[in-house]
Design a protein around this nucleic acid. Sequence first.
DNA 1: CGGTCGTTCTACAACGTTGCACACTAGCCG
DNA 2: CGGCTAGTGTGCAACGTTGTAGAACGACCG
Lengths: 366, 366
Amino acid sequence: MAVTMHDVAQRAGVSIKTVSNVVNGYPYIRAATRERVQAAIEDLGYRVNMSARNLRTRRTGLITLAVPELSLPYFAELADSVISAADEAGWTVLIEQTSASRERETDVLSGRRRHLTDGLIFSPLALGPDDIGLFTVDFPIVILGERVFGAPADHVTMNNVAAAKAATLHLASLGRRRIALIGAHEGEQVGSAALRTTGYLEGLAEAGLPHDPALIGEAGLWHRSTGAEAMRRMLDEGVEIDAVFALNDALALGALHALHARGIDVPGEVALIGFDDVDDAKYAVPALSSVDPGRAQIARTAVELLLERIGATGDPAPFRRVVPDSRIIGRESTGDVVPGQDSRVVGVQPGGTELVQATGEASGSR
Amino acid sequence: MAVTMHDVAQRAGVSIKTVSNVVNGYPYIRAATRERVQAAIEDLGYRVNMSARNLRTRRTGLITLAVPELSLPYFAELADSVISAADEAGWTVLIEQTSASRERETDVLSGRRRHLTDGLIFSPLALGPDDIGLFTVDFPIVILGERVFGAPADHVTMNNVAAAKAATLHLASLGRRRIALIGAHEGEQVGSAALRTTGYLEGLAEAGLPHDPALIGEAGLWHRSTGAEAMRRMLDEGVEIDAVFALNDALALGALHALHARGIDVPGEVALIGFDDVDDAKYAVPALSSVDPGRAQIARTAVELLLERIGATGDPAPFRRVVPDSRIIGRESTGDVVPGQDSRVVGVQPGGTELVQATGEASGSR
DNA sequence: CGGTCGTTCTACAACGTTGCACACTAGCCG
DNA sequence: CGGCTAGTGTGCAACGTTGTAGAACGACCG
């Protein structure tokens, strides 16, 4: 049915192995032979059978990207960047949606698709530090985000604490004194929520502002709807505020919606800043200030680290923890630009790379 | 290295083939044997080697979804829906980003990943009716969108003309007389732009409104930025308008941004409606009215049609063209709801299925 | 002139799985 | 009691590719 190397070999009058050598760019082939083979390939419309090659080479050329949901713009843009980065290196990405469910996240590590790809870039949302054991698998993993430290894997993360602190300080520098936070996870020890909240508290302290628990708005899932709800709740309770730091842009856009519904002017009465700097932020009304955590760099780095591991032979290199630079992007919602102007970088937090012991303990200071 | 069926067979004291039979749910196996095999699988942590299975069965269990860009919310949400639908049926989706480039769209049909998946769901943006020839390939395709009719493939599309007409009439029913259109592609004969523009013109005619070319705003790419530009251009030219029909939501959100920047009240001075009903629309300020083209149903239908074709043997069934129901969703930007209220369905356009001759001609009326 | 080296091509045996054909048992029917 | 069927399990031969080893040839060196 389908054309195989055998057919090509026959037509070109060479052995199967020579066709294979041509296809794989083996150098010791006479130009004339190579041309004959290539012509035969053209004529017959031959394509390599990936399944056979994969079986033989024990490689699939696929990597998995596991994210909670593509309909969340942050993850959609992340996926876009990861796919592009992988593509440049000749690799193909398979996306797995976990819906932030424990079961599906566990499946990603051990499920049926496990043998389909050569490596995994994983952004967990349900698994936590107690699940580190699950990460001991026989294929390379790069972990994104802040939930699972100490796993035997490379890690690409964000400048959460520093960036959140900078965002809070930025609001304070605008003269705001009652800075609300939206998106907190009460009692959580790990994860973006905890880290960004820490940064917020550090920022308040440094600005000499008191910490008022009434200013902390919970929101389990970081969706627009929960952001709007949290904002509404706070307004209903009559909490006095003049600024909001939303822990991601979806929350911020939801909060913006709620503020608008109450007729509260942004940034006049309340300044607002989000986190992630998704494409939406730029086109919100008013344009949303945000923290750019270096998404493109995260994607590129994650792919690089993963491919490096996949290609590595022998002695396992120490695991790395990479943090890209982050930036505070000022737009209309904090009054940093006038309507019509685009944006202004009002702060940069430098990132870096640190090595982690094989045991999982960080060697750097933190 | 990795555990194979051979290891499992040895441990369970059965033949390799019996292990295979257990794994594949072959019924004629004694319960005791099945349990022994399953225990061995557990113990050894055995996983089927997909490459070997794929080679042997000539199936990969993968389908490709080719879209322009995941960072466009419409396609991100579409991908989400397609992945979920495929997952329910036990299939895995591989996403290919074409960036709307001719070369990459051609690659999708004939490139190196062609042998990696069993079928393709393809949303072309660069290829057109002249490229129908490229679609004659030896694997099943389901085409999404409006660019390529008549190709030898199933087709899932939208109620473009009827829905655009309904959207225009809705604006007219609100008393608007100067209804602008944003996102036109001048001279284009096929594609969503042309169809939706046709619907717009039909709507104007039915409402008894004159057609003023100054009200037509061009926008090549349907991004937020181009929507904002087109809107700005129109405002700069001093065109008088009291409503805008944007050909998709990204354009609408961009236009909204431009209107806001000029201090123009929506919906007070200008009513605005988009197309696609992406999640963003709901949380825009003001919440954006839109046309819901039935995205979830499109995704589900596309996967169903594709898997049906993949599973089909022998005589090729006639190709189908499926159009889901579409709905006009009224929100704040057309004043259909008061701030705080969610949305209101202000119109439904029924879809349907028609069969297409093998030659590619539609058998239904159109 | 024998030996060594670089170049060009090939034969063979896997990779791990499943389709096919078949062996064997037990029960049942006529 | 012979033959049939349903139930249960096995052996063999692919699927299409590539890694390994090596054959054949000429050039070059000492």
